[in-house]
Each structure stands twice: as structure tokens, then as C-alpha cells.
Simulated assay, not measured.
Amino acid sequence: MGTDFLKLTGKRVVVAGVANKRSVGFHVARGLVEAGCEPIYIVRTDARRDELIAKLPRLAGTDAPAVYVLDVEDEAAIGPVCARIGAEHGPLAGLVHSIAFANYENGMVPFHETGRADFLQAVQISAFSLVELSRALKPHFEDDASVVTISISTTRMASENYGYMAPVKAALDSSIAFLAKSFSADSRVRFNAVRAGLLKTSSSAGIPGYLDSYLFAEMSILRKAALETREVADTALFLLSPRSSGINGQGLVVDAGMELNYFDKSIVAGATRPS
């Protein structure tokens, strides 16, 4: 087997949402570099850009990373930033959308008490930004480019400490099918989601009560070891590559078998016969 198995050598992919070295976006970017592909970074703030420029050469092996600042809440900025990326780095082989936000400043509340402003902000940042970025980058995509977003393993489980983000991620998941369909009218650009199980990231650390759920997930996983961010990133790399050309409009669950094992006898015993 050749060294360029993913067939990404010499290509360029936009990675939106690199927070730090623990984030999915960072692990995807590092995998792209290892595959001979150049990541083009989108971050939310100038401070994040400066931090990445300082750290990425050491962490990801890149000499002069291209980092663009774009707050996706600023609708007027999306078009110009994407046009600049396309002009300076196109054609683009793909986009990784690893952007999500929910306002938990006031703690977790029952879902029916979710505020309108908080919910709509989360939808805009976490779901509709995929539509906006894809639309703005469309003229700069290669004809067979691949777009991959990072979602969650299930939106049908009413996890109390995830709050309103599960319905928001459901909107993101549904958008995949509609984007795949609408882009198919004049291109072969593909859209897929990596539906990840619970991960230990900086963003998840801000969710009230997340740690307990993370530990329970580790107990539920068949191998009794937590899902690694790298494993989610590796799936995204596969979906970005031409090796996955037959996959479109799908969500691939990456949870190390967690959803199969909620009735593991040790978990059931712990819940029904506590010591």
C-alpha cells in the first residue's frame, strides 16, 4: 500500500473551530499535515489566532500556518473572509466544521425553560454556520470536495446535562442531507457528519455535570476505555479523503460501541443493587 493512502497530499482543507490541542479540529488538522495536506484555519478571535500561530509549528508540524479570524455570528464577515481564503488558497479540497456553542452562564435549566435568545444563538453558531460557510466557500471548492461536520452520537437521548444542544445538533445533522442534495445540482461536493460520543475537550469541560456523564460513558463503552479525540478525528480524515467518495449525506457514529452496552450487567447491578 502506498504512503498516500488518503490521497490528500498537496491538497488544502479549511478547518473551522480549532480551540486548542485537545479539540477535534486540532487533531483533524494534525492528521491532515501528516497526510501531506495543508490545513487553512478559521478561528473566532484575534487572541486565538495569535495563540495558534505561536503554537501550531510545534504542535502540528507546520512552518507558517494560515489562520483567519472569523466570528460566525458576524454574518457580514463570512463572505469576505471566505472569499479571501479562496483567493489565497483555493481550490479547496474540503471543509471541517467543528464549531459549537451554548450559553451555560446561568447553569443548566430544564429544557422547557430554555431562553429563546440562547437557543437561537446556539442554532446559528452550531448549525446554521455550516450552511453559511459552505455557501460562501462553494465557488472555491474543488468539484469533488468533502465537507465534514462534528456532531454527537445521538440526539434522541434526553441527557439533562446536555440541555438544548441535542436539538441544535439534530438541526445540524438534518442540514447534512439538505446540503448534500442542494450542492448535487452542479457539483460532486459531499457532506457528512462524524457523530462522536462523549469526549474530554475544553468545550465539554464548560458543560455543567459533564464529567459524571463522561465517566458513565467510559463504563458503558465495550472496551471500558474512553473514546479518544484522535479516533473521531481519524474518521473525519477518512470522510475528507477521496477514499470515502461513496459516502454522502451520512452521519457516522463514533462511540466505540457505547450505544450497544447500556444494559451491561455491571451497570445494571450498580444501578439496582448499589453498595
Score class of each variant (00 low, 15 high):
I150C: 05
R156Y: 05
M165P: 04
V109D: 10
N106E: 14
Y162Q: 04
F111G: 02
P110I: 14
K138E: 13
D173V: 06
V123M: 10
V168R: 00
P110C: 09
H112K: 09
S151A: 11
S175I: 13
G107L: 10
Q121G: 03
D173L: 10
G163K: 05
S134W: 05
I125V: 15
G163D: 07
S134A: 13
K169G: 01
Q124W: 08
F141I: 08
A145H: 02
S151D: 08
P110A: 13
A166F: 10
F141H: 04
A136K: 10
G163A: 06
E105D: 15
T154P: 13
S146D: 03
V131C: 05
V168K: 00
T154L: 05
E132S: 03
G115V: 12
Y162P: 00
T114F: 00
Q124S: 14
E142W: 09
F111T: 07
F119V: 06
L120Y: 06
S151P: 02
M108I: 14
T154W: 11
N161D: 12
F119E: 01
Y104A: 03
D173W: 09
D144C: 02
Y104Q: 10
G115I: 13
Y162V: 08
S175N: 11
F128S: 02
D173T: 07
N106D: 15
N161Q: 14
G115T: 15
M108E: 04
K138D: 08
R116I: 14
A122W: 07
S159R: 08
G163R: 00
K169N: 08
F128R: 00
L133C: 03
K169Q: 09
Y162N: 05
S159P: 02
A136T: 08
V147E: 00
V168N: 01
A127F: 04
R116L: 15
